[in-house]
Amino acid sequence: MSDTDRQPSRTRVPMPVAAMSDPHMGDAARHPARVEKLIVLVFVLAIVFIALFGAAYWQNWSDWILGGTIGAGLLLLGFGLTAWGKYLMPQGPFVEDRHPLASTPEERDAMSAALVERSAVVVKRRKMLGGLFATGAGIFGIVAIFPLLRSLGPVPGTSLDVTGWRRGMVLVDSDGRPVTRDTLVPGGIMTVYPRDTVIVNAGPQPLITDQGQAIDQTVLIRISDQDYTTQPGRETWGPAGYIAYSKLCTHLGCPVGLYEQLLELLVCPCHQSMFNVRNGAVPEFGPAPRPLPQLALMFNQDGHLAAQAPYDQPVGPGFWERS
């Protein structure tokens, strides 16, 4: 068989043909040679960059070279392809009719009729079966939610109200060292944790448990060298000028990590709540609604600073069950 034999067998579908001079073609298509040359250049450059990426990867060059080469390569490749599409392919305007999506009124009625009439026979006449099935499916829907949700975790209970602080718990810094009378000079500040939450011998550095970091974290300030009372009723809470507040912002629980020494304000960097350490960390500015809870302190018989009692209220942001 030869080529000429084959030609007639080609099923010729009557189809339109566009020439480069067709008005559907972009303007540049009238002089395709120039555009084509440009695109050739772009594609060649793209290939070079993509190959360079391969080389750069092979040689383990730095990431900005990898990104630069592949980025340039893909950019050129994409640009060339887009230019090809824009200038050398039929642009239109081609017109396509929109065929209405809606069916005829008869078809709609037939659909509605099928729904209504069939259900009239099968469902309405067997109300009992339908009701029972619906009840079963409904109950399944509800009980299926239990394991999905309830298995996820424990109910809160009182877990949101408690911290690791209790009577006699020694305050330690992040290295696990207890605080003595001379650890801070007046004006000094540090973060302390319950002794239980700092694991000293786990590695080259002490490790603080998640609990200690996230819930029990407390900021210790030495405000003077005399016993200090922040609010009436807290006369014994600040031995030797040491006062301690929960470090959890009462707004959204960010650690209140900044201390304005001159103004004696604890500042939360998240939304700029400011707490006055002198009068019991009452918020002076910002969205925090409540003072930081204060931890009552005492010196134990070893001369170490310890908690007199747990916090008298839940620490951190508010929630429904908090009273």
């Binding site: 189809m15 043909v17 020439a19 480069m20 001079s21």
Partner: peptide, 14 residues
Amino acid sequence: DPEPVPVRIDIEPL
């Protein structure tokens, strides 16, 4: 008017 999209593109400039 709606019209079919060309099936073939002749790249020879006329």
